[in-house]
C-alpha cells in the first residue's frame, strides 16, 4: 500500500478486501458527503431531453469560499431507495444531465466536483435504445475541453465506463478503500477464468485498488479512511475528504484555463505510454 496525504502508511489488505469495503452497504454515499461538506446545496433535475435520472445527483453548492457545482452518483440505502437510484447505475439521461450541468458550470465559470460511486452504467434495453454508449462518449468528449476546474473523487465503486464518464479531471482522487476497474472482478473472472468465484484472484490481477492506481499514475492522490473503512465513521471520512478537496480545488484554480486543459490533456496522453504526449502543444 502507498503512503499519501500526511505520509502515514495506510493499512494493507488484499485487493478483494477493498472490493468488499467499497461495496459495503453502510458505506457513505454521495449525499452523505454533500451534507457534510457543502452548504446551501440546491439540486437540479433532468437532462432536458428525456427524463431525470435519480442515479445521478446534480446541483450547486457553497464550499468554503467557492461556488461549486456537484455531480454525484448516488446509491440507495434501503430497498426502496436502491430501486429509485437503480443501485447507482446511471442511464443515458443521467450522463446527459451531467453534461448539461457541466456546461452550465462552465458558462458561469464555476468549478466542478464529481463524486463517483457506481457498479457501472446500466446495461438494459431502454439504456441501449437511448444511446448509453453515446451518452458516455459525449461526456468524455465534453470534459476534455471544459475550461473550469474538475475534481473527480471515487468514493466507492469506480465501475468501468460508467464511472469514467464523470471521471476525467484536473485531479482524480480515490478513497483508500474505493476501487476503479475496467470490469467487475466477477465479470473478469467469468470471462478469463470461466468462473466468477475466482473474483478475488481477478481483483489482484486487475490492479484496481487506490494504491495500485496511484502507482500507475492514473490517480493523483488517496484520501485516507478511518480504520476498518469509511462506513465506521462518516464524519471522519468527510474530514479527510475535506482536506484533500480543498487542496486539489485550490491548486486547480490557480491555473489559467489554457494551462488546465493542457495539463489535463497531457495527463490523459501519458496513460500507457509515457512521454508520448504533448504533440499538440
Amino acid at each position: 500500500m502507498q503512503t499519501q496525504n500526511n505520509g502515514e502508511i495506510l493499512p494493507s489488505g488484499n485487493a478483494f478486501d477493498h472490493v468488499r469495503i467499497a461495496r459495503h452497504p453502510e458505506r457513505p454515499y454521495a449525499w452523505d458527503f454533500i451534507e457534510r461538506l457543502f452548504v446551501n446545496f440546491i439540486e437540479l433535475h433532468g437532462d432536458r431531453r428525456f427524463a431525470d435520472d435519480p442515479a445521478v445527483i446534480c446541483g450547486f453548492a457553497k464550499y468554503k469560499k467557492w461556488e461549486i457545482f456537484v455531480i454525484g452518483q448516488q446509491k440507495g440505502r434501503d430497498t426502496k431507495q436502491r430501486r429509485l437510484r437503480n443501485f447507482g447505475m446511471s442511464k443515458p439521461e443521467g450522463y446527459r444531465k451531467a453534461i448539461r450541468a457541466m456546461k452550465h458550470a462552465e458558462k458561469f465559470g464555476r468549478p466542478i466536483v464529481c463524486l463517483i460511486d457506481t457498479p457501472g452504467a446500466y446495461p438494459g434495453i431502454d439504456a441501449e435504445e437511448r444511446g448509453q454508449a453515446e451518452a458516455i462518449a459525449h461526456s468524455l468528449f465534453s470534459m476534455a475541453t471544459l475550461s473550469v476546474p474538475i475534481i473527480s473523487v471515487i468514493i466507492g465503486e469506480g465501475g468501468s465506463g460508467g464511472a469514467l464518464a464523470i471521471g476525467v479531471g484536473d485531479a482524480v482522487l480515490m478513497f483508500e478503500n474505493s476501487i476503479y476497474s475496467v470490469i467487475s472482478p466477477e465479470g473478469c473472472a467469468a470471462i478469463l477464468w470461466k468462473n466468477s468465484a475466482e473474483a478475488p484472484r481477478a481483483s489482484e490481477s486487475l490492479r484496481l485498488t487506490a494504491g495500485d492506481l496511484l502507482e500507475l499514475k492514473i490517480i493523483d492522490g488517496i484520501i485516507s479512511e478511518p480504520v476498518g473503512g469509511a462506513h465506521t465513521s462518516f464524519d471522519e471520512a468527510a474530514k479527510a475528504f475535506d482536506g484533500a478537496l480543498e487542496k486539489a480545488l485550490g491548486d486547480a484554480l490557480e491555473l489559467t484555463p489554457v494551462e488546465r486543459l493542457r495539463l489535463r490533456y497531457n495527463k490523459l496522453r501519458s496513460f500507457g505510454f509515457e512521454n508520448s504526449g504533448g504533440l499538440m502543444w
Binding site: A137, L140, F141, S142, M143, A144, T145, S160, G161, L164, G167, V168, Y180, S181, V182, I183, C188, I191, L192, S205, L206, R207, L208, L213, L216, I218, R264, Y265, L268, R269, F271, G272, M280
Partner: peptide, 26 residues
C-alpha cells in the same frame, strides 16, 4: 471493448482518444 488484461489503463484510453477527438473537433 477495453482490454481487461491492461486493467484501468485500458479504460483510460477511452478518455484519451475522446480528448484527442475533442481537439480535432475544435
Amino acid at each position: 471493448g477495453a482490454r481487461m488484461q491492461e486493467g484501468t489503463l485500458s479504460l483510460m484510453q477511452m478518455a484519451k482518444i475522446s480528448a484527442a477527438l475533442a481537439f480535432l473537433d475544435r
